[in-house]
């Protein structure tokens, strides 16, 4: 029975030590980006396991080893920040595997990767044809990054020469029926505005699971009650439709009037409105 109690309090102590060590090393330890973090991650884990269950040994030695590993990892991180040479020596460089659409067999051999392994890695990136790849790099962590040839890359608005408006990140203003003040402040709105918008949507705040404000200041919500349909924001598409209707009206006035002066005025304004519609449509679509 004594052993159980011993394992119990050792587990708690090591959980705390592990928590503190990983917190100190930071996010890098979790992602295990470099060789050093990868190795220290594995080692720290097995030391902790060994020290918790190895009752005949002194657990303080294990805790010391974990702390030492943590300190060395932080030290290596700091030195890597300072010196490029150190970084290259410790973390290694990526190896070019495909260049100009051709596989570099020598580099592949140097890294001891077979062509099967290479194509398996490429397939993980949804690439089935080696000739589609312009450039591929074997990262120090053993995964592959590939740049496709221009014609095989996904189509973007830039390729179509479309003008796309820039959008800010949406801010979450309601979570579980509670107002998130931080999000409200970041979107430059107040509680009064939020209550007005909720009233427009016909919802009460207690029923809102999540509410977000997009970069146009429109509120979108998801309700707990999934049977209620929430209207999607319609203001901008409707405004575009109204603009188009007014433009057509002005054209009709221009055609139907007899007065030359008014005809010119209507025509001028119809053209002005057409320009405005063209400028605004990227912002008003969707």
């Amino acid at each position: 029975m004594d052993g159980f109690i011993e394992v119990f309090y050792r587990s708690i102590i090591f959980l705390i030590v592990l928590f503190l060590t990983t917190k100190l090393i930071g996010k890098k330890q979790i992602s295990q980006l470099s060789f050093f973090e990868y190795v220290s991650g594995i080692t720290i884990g097995s030391i902790a396991g060994e020290a918790i269950t190895g009752l005949e040994k002194n657990y303080l030695q294990g805790a010391g080893a974990i702390i030492l590993f943590g300190i060395v990892t932080i030290l290596v991180d700091v030195l890597s920040l300072k010196s490029k040479y150190f970084r290259d020596a410790i973390e290694g460089k990526g190896t070019v595997i495909i260049k100009d659409g051709k596989i570099l067999e020598d580099n592949l051999k140097k890294e001891r990767y077979t062509i099967d392994e290479l194509s398996a890695l490429l397939r993980q990136k949804n690439i089935f044809k080696v000739t589609d790849v312009e450039f591929a790099l074997l990262e120090p962590r053993g995964n592959i990054t590939a740049l496709l040839k221009k014609e095989n890359r996904p189509l973007t608005p830039k390729d179509l020469e479309m003008k796309m408006p820039n959008e800010k990140e949406p801010q979450t203003v309601i979570m579980d029926g509670n107002i998130i003040e931080e999000g409200l402040r970041a979107s430059g709105k107040g509680r009064g505005w939020l209550y007005t918008e909720l009233e427009k949507l016909g919802a009460i705040i207690d029923n809102v699971f999540i509410g977000q404000v997009d970069s146009y200041g429109e509120l979108t919500i998801d309700l707990y009650d999934d049977k209620i349909q929430v209207p999607a924001p319609q203001q901008r598409p409707l405004l575009l439709a109204t603009l188009k209707k007014t433009q057509a009206d002005l054209e009709i006035f221009a055609l139907s009037t007899e007065c030359e002066k008014s005809k010119a005025m209507y025509k001028k304004n119809a053209d002005l409105l057409q320009d405005t519609i063209e400028n605004l449509s990227p912002y008003l679509n969707g």
């Binding site: 408006p165 800010k168 979107s187 970069s215 146009y216 200041g217």
Partner: peptide
Amino acid sequence: LNSLEKEAQSAF
């Protein structure tokens, strides 16, 4: 007034 993005604000 409600837009957060500068470019959109000036376009409107």
